[in-house]
Structures are given as C-alpha cells and as structure tokens.
C-alpha cells in the first residue's frame, strides 16, 4: 500500500447491524486494521460475542452498544457514546437491515401495512437516523466517512421483495442526496450494493426461501467495506455492486 491509502489505525467507527452478517464482518475487518469500533445492534445478546471476538483478536477495541436504529433517542445516544468512548466519529457503516417482518414470502397484494412499514422503518428510516446522528461530529471535524448498505435490490425489484426493494432503492436516493449536501465539507458518503451474501437474513424467508447457489461470505463484504474506507480521500466509489464471482468451468487440459 502506498501512503495515499487511508489508514484506519486508531479511527473510531460506528457499525449498525453489527450482531451478525455484513455488520459483524465489517467490525472484525476494520478492527483488524486497527480501528476502534462501536458495534451497535438491537440484539444485545448476539452483539456481546462480536465485541468479545474483536477484543480477543488484538486489533482495535470494540464497545457494544445495544440500540434500536428506528429510535431517534437511541441513535443520538449512539453518537454520544462513540464520542465518549473514542473521542471522535470517523466513520459510520449503516448495515442494520431486515428482509421481511414475518416469515414467508408475500406478494404486495398480501402485504400487511405493518409489515411493509417495519421493513422501511429499519432499512430506510434507520439509515436516515444513523446518518443524521453522526453528521454534527463529522461536519465539525470536516472529515468523515459514511457507508450505507443498500443491495442489488436497490437497483432492481423482484417478486415478493416489494418492501425490501423499495427500502433499498430509498437508501441509494438518501445516500446520493446526502453526498451532494456534505461531500464538499469533507464527509464522504458512499453506498454499497451487495448481491447474495450468506447471512442469517435468508432465514427470514422461511422454508419457502430458495437460497442462491453462489453466495458471497460476509467476510468478502468486510474486505470491500475496508477498501472503501481506505480509498484516497479525493475519490469515492458510486453505488457499487459486489457479487459472487462466476463459477469457473471445470477445465480439462487437452493432451499433447
């Protein structure tokens, strides 16, 4: 790495949805580069082991903070806690998200209002509240990084995914709008669009779920998020899709 690459050593990074999946992998990946992480999730019981794993790994320090990303109060306290623990908020990775509010696939016609609203609350409004909470500290430091996790479903809708897809389209719009508002002030805002990742989110589809054949691991996304945070500060990547690498054909070398 050249010296242009941003060092994450000693940086303070908030990660929502950090109890599992992409959020947990991102926490481990950036902590391995020396960043301190405030790992945030609704599920305190599953969050504690992630913080313990980070702290046992000997990189940056992790502090667990149980919070609901749809609560204005919780998100404000999240920012306060990061400042109190680490003295700064250098980056936010907003990874909290759900696929469905109840088990099983539903068409839009079958979708109860409450279920639709729940998905949009967590995925879109939760991203808004987490972003808004960290902005004052970043704007006053004239420096910061925000990465919002959208999805390939943020570019293309699919049957049975109306709420999820709508929320992830929304995350891209929110990210682009915020980028125009604050990038001139040193706060870099990017979104990441994972294709199929092998996380617990698939269980939310119940037995009806057809898991894709090829999937990324959460660790792949941890690596890519690290790359985005380490990018030289004059560049940003636009709504990047990250997908499983195509399966390689079995090669049989012709005999001479």
């Amino acid at each position: 790495m050249t010296d242009l690459t941003e060092s994450l050593e000693g940086r303070a990074i908030i990660i929502t949805g950090a109890a599992g999946g992409i959020g947990a992998a991102a926490a481990k990946a950036v902590a391995a580069k020396g960043a301190n992480v405030l790992v945030v999730d609704l599920f305190a019981d599953r969050l504690a082991p992630v913080a313990e794993a980070v702290n046992a790994a000997g990189g940056g320090r992790a502090v667990a903070f149980a919070a609901d990303c749809t609560s204005e109060d919780d998100m404000a306290k999240m920012a306060e806690t990061c400042l109190a623990e680490f003295g700064a908020i250098d980056a936010l990775v907003a990874a909290a998200g759900i696929l469905r509010a109840s088990e099983g696939l539903k068409t839009l016609a079958q979708m109860p209002y409450e279920e639709f609203r729940k998905v949009v609350d967590v995925n879109l409004t939760g991203t808004f509240l987490a972003n808004r909470a960290v902005l004052p500290a970043m704007l006053s430091a004239k420096r910061g990084d925000i990465i919002n996790i959208s999805s390939v479903s943020g570019k293309h809708g699919r049957a049975f995914d109306s709420a999820y897809s709508a929320s992830k389209f929304g995350v891209i719009g929110l990210t682009e709008s915020l980028a125009e508002e604050v990038q001139r002030d040193g706060v870099r805002v990017q979104s990441l669009l994972p294709d199929a990742v092998d996380t617990g989110i698939w269980a939310q589809s119940g037995t009806a779920a057809l898991k894709p054949r090829a999937m990324l691991t959460p660790e792949h996304l941890g690596l890519f998020i690290t790359y985005m945070l380490e990018l030289p500060r004059d560049a940003f990547v636009v709504n990047q899709v990250v997908a499983p690498i195509p399966q390689r054909k079995k090669r049989v070398k012709a005999k001479a």
Partner: peptide, 9 residues
C-alpha cells in the same frame, strides 16, 4: 475474490 461489476469512481 469477488465480482465487482462496472465500477464507477
């Protein structure tokens, strides 16, 4: 290690 289609920077 992963597919990164059509990157825009």
């Amino acid at each position: 290690e992963m597919g990164i289609p059509e990157p825009f920077f």
